[in-house]
Amino acid sequence: MADEYALGFDALARPLRMAGEPHQVTLELSGDHSAEAELRRLVADHYQRFLPGQAPPQGSDLSEFVAGLPVEGA
């Protein structure tokens, strides 16, 4: 459901939004600019709050950073 979605980014750190009807939701870019700093800040906050003692990815390149994020269910 679109109203259950808080915030997301694509692999280039561009912000995404959900659109559509319930159970027929699609992801769309909400801007062409990279929000890499915001993505990194949110990931660091998530690790601090929910994964204490673990360090977030430290890749200096965006692709390395994204590749270092955990995969859900893995």
Rank of each mutant, 00 (worst) to 15 (best):
Gly68Asn: 03
Ser30Lys: 11
Leu7Ser: 09
Asp3Ala: 11
Leu29Tyr: 09
Val43Tyr: 01
Thr26Asp: 09
Leu27His: 13
Glu64Lys: 09
Leu7Ile: 14
Leu62Thr: 11
Leu62Pro: 13
Ala11Leu: 12
Gly68Ala: 04
Ala35Asn: 04
Ala19Asn: 07
Leu39Cys: 14
Asp32Glu: 14
Gly31Tyr: 08
His46Glu: 00
Tyr5Pro: 06
Ala11Asp: 15
Leu27Ile: 08
Glu28Thr: 12
Ser60Val: 09
Phe65Glu: 07
Gln48Gly: 06
Pro57Gln: 08
Ala44Ser: 05
Met1Ala: 14
Leu27Cys: 12
Ala13Leu: 03
Val71Cys: 00
Leu16Tyr: 12
Glu36Trp: 03
Met1Ser: 13
Asp10Glu: 14
Gln54Val: 04
Gly8Trp: 04
His33Val: 09
Phe9Trp: 15
Pro22Cys: 09
Ala67Ile: 01
Pro56Ser: 10
Asp61Tyr: 07
Arg17Ala: 15
Ala44Gly: 06
Phe9Thr: 12
Phe9Met: 15
Asp45Ile: 04
Asp32Phe: 06
Tyr5Glu: 04
Glu4Tyr: 10
Leu27Asn: 10
Phe65Leu: 06
Ala37Gly: 10
Leu62Lys: 07
Leu39Glu: 07
Gly20Phe: 12
Leu27Thr: 13
Asp3Met: 08
Pro57Lys: 06
Phe50Trp: 10
Arg49Trp: 02
Tyr5Cys: 04
Gly20Asn: 11
Ala55Gly: 01
Met18Arg: 15
Tyr47His: 01
Ala37Met: 05
Glu21Tyr: 10
Asp10Phe: 10
His33Pro: 02
Val66Cys: 11
Phe65Thr: 07
Pro56Phe: 05
Tyr47Met: 01
Leu29Val: 05
Leu27Trp: 09
Leu51His: 10
Glu38Cys: 08
Met18Thr: 15
Leu27Glu: 11
Gly68Ile: 06
Leu62His: 10
Ser63Leu: 09
Ala55Met: 02
Asp32Tyr: 05
Arg40Ser: 07
Glu28Val: 13
Pro56Met: 08
Asp3Ser: 13
Val71Thr: 02
Ser63Tyr: 01
Ala19Leu: 13
Pro15Arg: 12
Leu12Tyr: 11
Asp61Cys: 11
Val25Tyr: 02
Asp45Glu: 14
Ser30Met: 13
Arg41Pro: 05
Gln24Arg: 14
Gln24Cys: 03
Gly20Trp: 13
Leu12Ser: 15
Ser63Val: 09
Leu69Val: 03
His46Thr: 01
Ala11Gly: 14
Leu12Met: 11
Phe9Gly: 13
Phe9Asp: 14
Gly20Tyr: 12
Ser30Gln: 13
Gly73His: 00
Asp10Ser: 08
